[in-house]
Write a protein that binds this DNA or RNA. Structure first.
Lengths: 156, 156
DNA sequence: GGTAGTGCGTGCGCCGCGCACGCATCTCCT
DNA sequence: AGGAGATGCGTGCGCGGCGCACGCACTACC
């Protein structure tokens, strides 16, 4: 396969390899599996359904439900409903946008920030546990390439 | 952060970096998004719901619904239902297990194999399109590390 | 100032999912 | 050999999330 090169300088086989690995990875990291385990014992409001909203909000900062929807991968109404659950649990609150009294900005409360910190630590620890056996330096380069892949890759 | 090392020899920051990148990646590669676009125009039976079953079956070879269930990430009954749809479309068929007359082995038909080939090519091409700008060799090493990460990683 | 446009929350119908049941078949023990 | 428990499969059922579309509040523009 060394000869089957393309103009881009990358072999086609690599695309299939990455596709297969991604397929495996994605199957293991569904909400029903990863997010469910990750949010165990985090209270009633934080589960595999509300987690994406909470996480997206933490990443982007205070935003409206409509802005959060494409980032969370669900319909705007879904964000509203999940936000209501999180609001009832005191993890986020709805703030009136001072410039537009129609808009309700979703913003994390103190408890919400703490929950996100905890969840991030859990996930990072979970990943680190298996990266510990990697040769030094490889994990760093993998993280760098993964970051690049998500930033300018096909799923940007 | 150069000083905050752990016994494993990998910095904790890397765990957070990978976690964040994975989070972004996973949000972009939901069934509702990636698999939906991927299966567009592949006929009525092949959609984002039946795709995981079709893909898993292609990877593992002829298996029963119960064996396929954990690999597809859904309940056994879900596999049965999706398999029925794929069977009606002629992409798979149920074969009686010669050693156990209770068991129905799911096996891809000629058309099913063709569909999987097409889907794999689509995904690989989609990935390759953005990998083309990478320096030569980096895509290969990324694929290798990704493979390792899925094989012996936290989601194995 | 009035009309079209925008943002939000919610009711409704649909669909996938997990649980549990029934039937067919296998296994093992006596 | 034969019966009892175990196993595999398909299916009915209730639950819950999702997308669509509507109504209401407010804004922007003419």
């Amino acid at each position: 396969m060394r000869r089957a090169r393309y103009s881009c300088g990358v072999e086609n086989e690599v695309g299939h390899e990455i596709a297969e690995a991604l397929g495996i990875l994605l199957r293991r990291t569904t909400r029903a599996q990863l997010h469910k385990r990750l949010t165990e014992g985090m209270g009633e409001a934080v589960d595999e359904v509300t987690y994406p909203v909470l996480s997206a909000l933490a990443r982007t900062g205070p935003r409206s439900a409509a802005e959060l929807a494409p980032d969370a991968g669900v319909d705007r109404s879904g964000v509203t409903r999940r936000a209501s659950r999180l609001e009832a649990a005191g993890l986020i609150r709805r703030e009136a946008d001072p410039t537009d009294r129609r808009a309700h900005l979703l913003v994390l409360t103190e408890e919400g920030e703490a929950a996100v910190t905890e969840l991030r630590a859990r996930l990072a620890a979970h990943i680190m546990r298996s990266l510990s056996s990697w040769p030094p330096g490889e994990a760093e380069s993998f993280a760098r390439q993964l970051r690049r892949f998500t930033a300018e890759g096909p799923f940007a």
